[in-house]
């Protein structure tokens, strides 16, 4: 299965919902991150110039995705940057652990397309599931 995402219109008309998929958890999380940043900008114009390390440990897979997306939204504000590349490793067992780095560049209104800011990840109809051929998630972003 090729990783990817699709925006859903029906769930949260005031905001933005998406579903994402990937053969592995890493691919799934990467699809979710791209779907989140594509709401804010045209990702093809964002160069992976600078990297930031991320490490998250949680009790459940749901929590791991919620905290990961919250982390990159936080990094968007504090570094005033968009991110286009995500190099992640996820260990799933009794606990869940994500480590890796996100790469992007400072927001530049001259070069980047500015769309709508993402305020937060919501738990509204939030889903992360293992399917026959990989992993699937549904997320609603608050704009």
């Amino acid at each position: 299965m090729k990783p990817g995402y699709r925006y859903i219109d029906e769930i949260a008309p005031a905001d933005q919902a998406f579903e994402a998929w990937g053969a592995s958890l890493e691919e799934l999380f990467c699809s979710c991150a791209k779907a989140t940043f594509e709401v804010m900008t045209d990702l093809s114009k964002v160069e992976p110039e600078k990297s930031f390390a991320i490490e998250i440990e949680t009790e459940t897979l749901d929590e791991l995705l919620y905290l990961f997306l919250s982390e990159i939204i936080y990094l968007k504000d504090t570094e005033r940057s968009f991110y286009s590349e995500f190099d992640l490793r996820i260990e799933a067992g009794n606990e869940f652990r994500l480590s890796g780095k996100v790469s992007g560049e400072k927001i530049d209104s001259e070069r980047h397309v500015l769309k709508t800011d993402v305020k937060a990840v919501t738990y509204h109809q939030f889903q992360v599931k293992k399917r026959k051929d990989g992993y699937y998630a549904r997320v609603v972003l608050d704009l």
């Binding site: 929590e63 919620y66 905290l67 919250s70 939204i73 936080y74 504000d77 305020k119 937060a120 990840v121 738990y123 608050d142």
Partner: peptide, 13 residues
């Protein structure tokens, strides 16, 4: 702004 969004995110979790 991001301040309030983060407070909400933290406490919802």
């Amino acid at each position: 702004r991001g301040f309030g969004h983060q407070v909400a995110t933290d406490y919802l979790f």
